[in-house]
């Protein structure tokens, strides 16, 4: 009955029918047209048209002005800070995220469940709140700033503060991607290695780490991508001094406030392309590692 109705509805528009056959493989379930139409309309309005506006606007001022906007020394200094601090923060998170995931999965200790739930805090806490909290802690006279100041270490309002904020924001990515991989890791493999005479350290280096590497790489790249675009948690602690502690996202806003729409769009395009290039590169590396491991096994 229902099928009959569906078919009749479809037949109403012959052209649409032809397109459906070309576009999709046969499925008996209803709702392809409706969900496709709705999803595509929504995505076009919310994502595709605005993104097209971004690329069009960055090109509208001509190549010369585009180039001048993205090569301005102040902008270049911000790339160095943003990408450098993001890379360093992602590396810190890769190391400590691996240790944290390992401790949470393999060991039992008091407070483990609460810590496990708290790992997602940087996702759940609004970035502006993280930003002012970190600033309050590391500022002169803050809980930690008070102790670091006599040692000559200044965190708040320096590039070091940017690093702290980006480490905070990227922490959950590595832990949450490595955790499931670690849980799926078969104990038998480790036992086999041990029975063949491998020491614990050897087993870790030769068996466990290679198995975790793809997950670690995914977590690292997610943390890196997030850190590159991060804004809220950074701007409070960064101090935002031109050439020194100014991140690229903030420069986009500065340009907007000066009504330099083309300049803002140009910098945004550079950031977008860098993020996409990075994700593409990591995916390619991931594919290569997987293939090599499969061939090796």
């Amino acid at each position: 009955m229902q099928n009959e109705e569906c078919r009749m509805q479809n037949a109403k528009s012959g052209e649409w029918q032809v397109m459906r056959i070309a576009l999709k493989q046969h499925s008996v379930l209803p709702g392809f047209g409706v969900s496709l139409g709705y999803t595509m309309t929504y995505l076009s309005l919310v994502v595709l048209v605005p993104l097209a506006a971004l690329f069009a606007r960055s090109a509208s001022a001509g190549w010369g002005r585009f180039w001048a906007a993205i090569c301005d020394p102040r902008v270049v200094a911000s790339y160095r800070l943003t990408f450098g601090a993001a890379l360093l923060a992602a590396l810190i998170n890769a190391v400590f995220g691996l240790i944290i995931a390992w401790s949470l999965v393999r060991y039992r200790f008091p407070g483990r469940r609460i810590l496990d739930a708290l790992v997602d805090l940087p996702f759940a806490l609004p970035t502006a709140v993280s930003g002012i909290a970190l600033t309050a802690i590391y500022a002169q006279g803050g809980w930690l700033g008070r102790w670091l100041e006599p040692l000559g270490i200044k965190v708040a309002f320096t590039p070091l503060g940017v690093l702290v904020a980006l480490t905070f924001i990227g922490l959950p990515f590595v832990v949450r991607t490595v955790q499931p991989a670690l849980e799926d890791l078969e104990k038998e493999m480790e036992e086999a290695a041990a029975s063949l005479g491998a020491g614990r350290w050897q087993t870790l280096r030769r068996v466990i780490l290679p198995a975790l590497f793809p997950a670690l790489l995914t977590g690292f790249s997610l943390a890196l991508a997030r850190a590159i675009g991060e804004y809220g948690s950074v701007i409070f602690i960064a101090g935002n001094m031109p050439m020194k502690s100014e991140i690229t996202s903030l420069l986009i806003i500065t340009k907007l406030e000066q009504y330099d729409y083309a300049g803002a769009a140009a910098i945004a395009v550079v950031m977008l392309l860098a993020s996409f290039g990075l994700l593409f590169g990591v995916n390619a590396l991931q594919w290569w590692v997987n293939r090599r491991q499969r061939v090796g096994a």
Binding site: P50, L54, Y231, I252, Y261, A265, S275
Partner: peptide
């Protein structure tokens, strides 16, 4: 997830802002 939040806001300003499309 791959786009900076600032860029997410910017695209709407470029479209609907006073000097936008």
């Amino acid at each position: 997830f791959a786009v900076s939040p600032v860029i997410s806001g910017l695209i709407y300003v470029l479209l609907f802002g006073l000097q936008g499309w």
